[in-house]
Amino acid sequence: MIFENLETVDGLIKSVHSILFVLLPIADMVYEVLYKGVPVREAMQELTAKLI
């Protein structure tokens, strides 16, 4: 699967959440970094805390 731009990532994440009703912590982290300006280090720390 190839992502061409940020809009594709946004659409993919929203589609998966709405169709499958699954938790995607890594995809959520990518969304937070790309669209909400969350620093990568902060997002990784939050992700690590959720997964441990």
Rank of each mutant, 00 (worst) to 15 (best):
G11E: 12
V40T: 14
E46V: 03
G37W: 08
T8G: 06
V38E: 08
A43C: 07
E7N: 11
V40C: 03
D28Q: 15
M29K: 12
V40F: 06
L47Q: 08
K14C: 01
V38K: 13
G11Y: 02
V16Q: 03
V30S: 04
G37S: 10
L34S: 07
K14M: 03
F21T: 11
D28Y: 12
V38I: 08
L51Q: 07
L23W: 08
V16D: 00
L20S: 13
D28W: 11
L34W: 02
V30A: 10
E4M: 06
P25W: 01
Y31I: 02
H17I: 07
K14G: 03
P39Y: 01
E42P: 05
T8N: 08
P39L: 02
T48D: 14
L12I: 07
V30W: 07
V30M: 07
I52L: 09
M29H: 07
P39W: 02
A43Y: 07
E42W: 02
L51R: 09
I2G: 05
E4C: 04
L12V: 10
A49R: 15
K14I: 06
L34G: 04
E7C: 00
M29Y: 02
V16F: 02
L34V: 07
G11A: 09
V9A: 07
S18P: 05
G37P: 13
V16P: 04
K50V: 00
V38N: 02
E46S: 14
E42V: 14
L12N: 09
F21N: 15
S18I: 04
S18L: 09
F3N: 06
N5Y: 00
V9C: 04
L23G: 06
A49W: 02
L34N: 05
L12C: 12
I13G: 00
P39V: 00
K36P: 05
A49M: 11
L20H: 10
L24V: 13
I2C: 05
E42K: 15
M29I: 11
P39K: 07
V38P: 00
A43R: 12
I13F: 01
F3M: 14
V16S: 04
K14W: 01
R41N: 05
L24C: 11
M1T: 11
M1E: 11
L24I: 14
R41W: 06
V16L: 10
I13T: 11
S15E: 12
S18N: 14
V22F: 08
V33G: 04
L20C: 12
Y35M: 06
I2V: 13
P25E: 00
Y35H: 14
S15L: 10
G37K: 08
E7H: 04
H17Y: 07
V30P: 05
E7T: 05
L12M: 11
M29S: 15
M44K: 13
N5G: 11
I52A: 10
N5F: 00
M1N: 08
I13R: 00
P39G: 00
I26G: 08
F3R: 08
L20P: 03
L6T: 10
M44Q: 10
E42A: 14
D28P: 10
N5V: 04
Q45G: 07
V33I: 15
F3E: 03
P25C: 01
N5S: 11
S18D: 13
S15N: 08
Y35P: 03
V40Q: 05
M44H: 08
S15F: 09
M44F: 13
S15I: 00
M29T: 15
V22L: 15
I13N: 01
E32Q: 15
D10G: 05
